[in-house]
Design a protein around this nucleic acid. Structure first.
Lengths: 200, 200
DNA sequence: GTCTATATGCAGATAGAC
DNA sequence: GTCTATCTGCATATAGAC
């Protein structure tokens, strides 16, 4: 049952790599998690690095296409922002450990990125034009698309990446309280952004 | 020359641990970086974990006190925000790898946090009262201090944590262009926050 | 395709001379 | 306090039987 096994391995590898990183992960733990033998991992992927690369690439593309295509839907701009935040927040909420994982591994080996970005054909040009048009038309304040983009992504991503810290600092480590906080968060970020860029 | 050596070790350990993390770091590399022998590391700190803990604690406290005390200066609130962003941005700019390092390691071992937070006596109560007072007085929009705090920190921290990604996505990996972007960023974040919370 | 057993290398840690 | 040499264990990877 080749396909099934390969899928089981990838599921297990995802789980272990994303929480522990490349260096922290153990092939033994991945094998256990997959309910198979260690040698079988090498039969399917030959090296730890290969297995990791498969997981990383998948995670990366779960994160990035949204990031750029977020704001290019064909509806009024402020609604678009709202929709984009809504969508991206849900994606990260479903994969809360991916941003930190990707950021950490990119930091470890930044050059790996170049080829991946080319592969995907990520191109922020369209976003740039849209934002500039909105500014020129006087519908939003004068802001570069890079700042706007980074601000939105930052607030969404950090809601999850900084959770262990914030939950302890502000909510006495109460899971339920932080869950409640997260439920407000999407709306709060939207309001924060809209308030900030719309003309008075 | 005991003191000197211990300081050299800590300098080297800081450098290596903060860029590679606990799992990715090698005692040999730290020894090389310090210009001493591997055995000497163990003479001074006995275990890798001990050495790491020293580095981590230091990094953590470089990050955190600011985070909470940021907004409690005794000047008008919006000015305070400005000053706080200014100060915190400079701190992170001087230590750009620390946030990701701390977040990653907290994720690896969240329980380590409890004791550290107690040690420091971090208490966001004062911040809470201040923000609530401003809201009640009608000087800013109705916002919880946790959201405000997280928003500000997010935008500052991610300016550096996501640099390898953003520099490649938006600036064709040109160092100078991203440096230029960073120079605008402090002012941009300030404007973004003030715009968002001040009453229309 | 899956397993058990094993080779290989390396990292953390210690012993002991100076 | 600092070094060289060495031990120990463990993690990745391979060999080979089924």
């Amino acid at each position: 049952m080749k396909d099934n096994t390969e899928e089981k391995i990838l599921d297990a590898a995802r789980k272990v790599f994303i929480t522990k990183g490349l260096d922290g992960a153990r092939m033994q733990e991945i094998a256990d998690e997959a309910g198979i033998n260690k040698a079988l991992l090498h039969y399917y992927f030959r090296t730890k690095q290969n297995l990791f690369d498969a997981v990383f690439e998948e995670a990366f593309f779960k994160l990035i296409p949204h990031v750029v295509n977020l704001l290019t839907l064909d509806i009024p701009f402020l609604e678009r922002i709202e929709k984009a935040i809504d969508k991206y927040f849900d994606v990260i909420n479903a994969n809360p450990f991916i941003p930190l994982f990707v950021l950490h591994e990119i930091n470890r080996d930044p050059d790996k990125l170049a080829s991946l970005l080319k592969k995907q054909g990520v191109n922020p040009e369209k976003l740039k034009l849209i934002v500039e048009a909105e500014v020129k038309a006087g519908r939003i304040i004068d802001i570069r698309h890079e700042h706007l983009m980074l601000n939105i992504i930052s607030m969404i991503v950090m809601s999850f990446a900084a959770r262990p810290l914030f939950q302890r600092m502000f909510f006495e480590n109460q899971e339920e309280q932080y869950e409640e906080f997260l439920k407000q968060r999407k709306q709060e970020i939207t309001r924060f952004v809209i308030n900030s860029i719309q003309k008075k």
